Computed example of a mutant assay.
Amino acid sequence: MIKHIAFCPDITGETLLLSAEESHHCIKVLRLHRNDTIGIMNGKGILLEGSIEQPDIKKCQVRIISTIREQRRTEHQLHIGISPIKQQARFEWFIEKAVELGVAMISPLLCDRTEKPNLQYPRLENLIISAAKQSGNLILPILNQPQKFTDFILQQKTACRYIGYCGDGQKIALHQLPLHQNTCIIIGPEGDFSPREISLAINHHFSLLSLGEHRYRTETAGIIAAVYCSVFNQTIGG
């Protein structure tokens, strides 16, 4: 049984070199030694079994033994567009849980009421890798660069599009969403979307979505949507 997993995007060939960060973690933190077994994931659906040949803290060399598992992308993928949160730790929590739940793509949205975001992409990318290792999700989600709300809406082509909304209007409930469909759900900032944004989204074939009777924090709303679409799709109807 593989206890430890390292990330290496390039897994071609019989041997590979881990990055300086992964090498340091394996040798200094996990205290692995020559001939110790380790899992190697490439973030694209492949998990390999490897054996450490050169336990160097900067360039750890691993010999590939076999393929442990291959994971395919689901046919029904979830794309969450979400307003960044001023408190970095809360947005990081959302990113971590979204990875664990198998969200395929995350797009930070700069909305009319978005507070000045403080997105540290190298840190977020490391967090994504760490969450994937911990959860066993072998496919890393795509984390897009921040995008203006209007540009995002105009570019969306996903058939099933929903905008979470706390105001009045004819809304669809989470349990009414169709199963096994590529889905895009957008979550607004605290204070909700502006009337201009709601009108623009509706005019571009987004349906208003209700997440329930309560008003949630942005990151909580994003996770509620992810839990339903990711877990419910997996457990109902295969």
Rank of each mutant, 00 (worst) to 15 (best):
residue 3 K to F: 06
residue 6 A to C: 12
residue 6 A to W: 08
residue 7 F to R: 01
residue 9 P to W: 03
residue 16 L to S: 01
residue 20 A to N: 13
residue 22 E to V: 06
residue 23 S to T: 10
residue 25 H to S: 11
residue 25 H to G: 04
residue 28 K to C: 14
residue 30 L to W: 04
residue 32 L to N: 02
residue 33 H to D: 13
residue 34 R to K: 06
residue 37 T to E: 12
residue 42 N to F: 07
residue 47 L to V: 06
residue 56 D to I: 09
residue 60 C to Q: 02
residue 68 I to Y: 10
residue 72 R to M: 15
residue 77 Q to M: 07
residue 82 I to A: 12
residue 86 K to N: 14
residue 88 Q to P: 00
residue 88 Q to C: 00
residue 89 A to P: 02
residue 95 I to N: 01
residue 101 L to Y: 05
residue 101 L to C: 03
residue 104 A to N: 11
residue 105 M to I: 02
residue 106 I to R: 09
residue 107 S to K: 09
residue 115 E to Y: 01
residue 116 K to H: 13
residue 118 N to V: 15
residue 121 Y to G: 00
residue 125 E to V: 05
residue 128 I to P: 13
residue 129 I to D: 06
residue 136 G to E: 15
residue 139 I to T: 04
residue 140 L to M: 10
residue 141 P to F: 11
residue 141 P to Q: 04
residue 145 Q to T: 11
residue 157 K to C: 12
residue 159 A to T: 10
residue 160 C to D: 07
residue 161 R to M: 13
residue 162 Y to H: 00
residue 168 D to S: 05
residue 168 D to L: 14
residue 168 D to R: 09
residue 170 Q to I: 14
residue 175 H to C: 08
residue 175 H to A: 05
residue 176 Q to H: 12
residue 176 Q to W: 09
residue 185 I to M: 08
residue 187 I to D: 07
residue 196 R to H: 11
residue 200 L to D: 12
residue 201 A to H: 08
residue 202 I to V: 00
residue 202 I to D: 08
residue 204 H to C: 12
residue 205 H to M: 10
residue 207 S to H: 14
residue 208 L to V: 08
residue 208 L to F: 01
residue 208 L to M: 12
residue 210 S to Y: 09
residue 211 L to I: 02
residue 221 A to T: 05
residue 226 A to D: 13
residue 228 Y to M: 02
residue 229 C to E: 14
residue 231 V to E: 07
residue 235 T to H: 09
residue 238 G to P: 13
